[in-house]
Design a protein around this nucleic acid. Structure first.
Lengths: 146, 146
DNA sequence: TTTCATGCAAAGGTTTTGCATACGC
DNA sequence: GCGTATGCAAAACCTTTGCATGAAA
């Protein structure tokens, strides 16, 4: 899923936020690197080349805003910094396989977790609104290297 | 699962680490608060009352060491600090239900995830060694408060 | 022209590190 | 005694915040 300029514009104005060049630039950084899970620092360096005057604080404020608007999803891979990617629009969430050797992160879809979630919710009287599933292990290319 | 003094001693000496009063005290903090998910700061304050001379850096170094030895498991609930609990020895991992209202963390066991894990591993040619599943939602008492 | 966004620098919170001293083995 | 562990303080790191300026509506 890639968010366009128009979608951003619409979402911003709906909440009386302004459409600034910085916000547009940061959105583009994500459309051009849709497959990575960018940290604020990553975004900062990506946009710095095109807009050298941009500040790191603006990047932090902007990715926070985008997350609030539902454009980005904040995630944590345990490396001490938050990472962001476009919110997936499909019915089923996707999750992450994190290689403990090369630290590459790949995605996978799951259908089964929905069933699991319903059972957990019932057994624990817990009203689930979101979930986060990560598998740690060795990716295929690291397996082949040995 | 609770680790005893003897187990700690054995695990430490096996790797030429020393058994110090600080390490013993920190272990006891976990045995006496086995149900909580303690942050380094939590541990620091717990042990400070009995051993006022202990340093925060020692707590950090010790929980890291215990995690390396497999005694503690480091976990992240997205609140900006790492938390630790005794490594569960059972065959099935347990996971967490995190209330987004009162931030209480409760545990649940799962049997289904094992099946899911096997399927994911096969479909993605990924050798899974660990997993981490979190559900975010509203706990029972918060549901009843409304 | 009003209000929100920005950039900069400083502060905040968690975790790590350097170093002299103390202590387990 | 040798080598690791400790305590303290400082630094490192990511992130947030205060404030004056600048720009969008």
């Amino acid at each position: 899923m890639t968010y366009t300029y128009e979608v951003l514009c619409e979402k911003l104005l709906a909440k009386d936020y302004k459409l600034t060049p910085q916000r547009e630039t940061i959105l583009r950084a994500f459309t051009e690197h849709g497959d990575s899970h960018l940290s604020a620092e990553d975004v900062y360096h990506l946009v710095k080349s095109k807009s050298p005057e941009i500040g790191l604080a603006t990047v932090y404020r902007t990715v926070d805003l985008f997350a609030e608007l539902g454009i980005l999803q904040k995630m944590d891979f345990g490396d001490g910094r938050s990472r962001y990617e476009f919110t997936k629009q499909e019915e089923h969430h996707h999750h992450h396989l994190i290689c403990i050797n090369c630290h590459k992160v790949q995605e996978f879809d799951d259908d089964l977790l929905e069933t699991l979630e319903a059972m957990i919710a019932r057994k624990n009287s817990f009203k689930i609104v979101d979930h986060d599933l990560k598998f740690y292990g060795i990716c295929l290319s690291c397996q082949e290297q040995t």
